[in-house]
């Protein structure tokens, strides 16, 4: 199972949010897995059409995902996934 980590900023809205392991072969499946565990969290990460929000980034290992529209980047059980917001304010 992939290991999923988050920016601290999301803990303001989900105080119980902790790094976790999730089943899934694509980022889209991981995001759905997060929604199942933390209802509503998906809406913070993607918009109503499932596209990654403009100022949110997802890394697989040290690489940004390529498919921000459908989140079809493939992942393996050994991957570490990091969900973060874009930096703002310098």
């Amino acid at each position: 199972m992939a290991h999923v980590k988050f920016t601290q900023a999301l803990r303001r809205f989900y105080p119980d949010l902790k790094p976790l392991h999730l089943e899934g072969s694509t980022i889209a499946e991981i995001v759905q897995g997060l929604e199942d565990k933390y209802p509503g969290l998906k809406d913070y990460i993607v918009d109503e059409h499932g596209q990654l929000r403009k100022h949110v980034n997802i890394f697989i290992q040290n690489s940004l995902i390529k498919d921000r529209t459908h989140l079809q980047d493939k992942i393996t059980d050994q991957d570490e996934i990091y969900i973060m917001q874009a930096l703002s304010g310098g």
């Binding site: 900023a9 999301l10 809205f13 809406d43 913070y44 990460i45 918009d47 929000r53 100022h55 949110v56 917001q85 874009a86 703002s88």
Partner: peptide
């Protein structure tokens, strides 16, 4: 109006 996380 969360800049990063959308409107709530």
């Amino acid at each position: 109006d969360h800049g990063h996380w959308g409107s709530k």
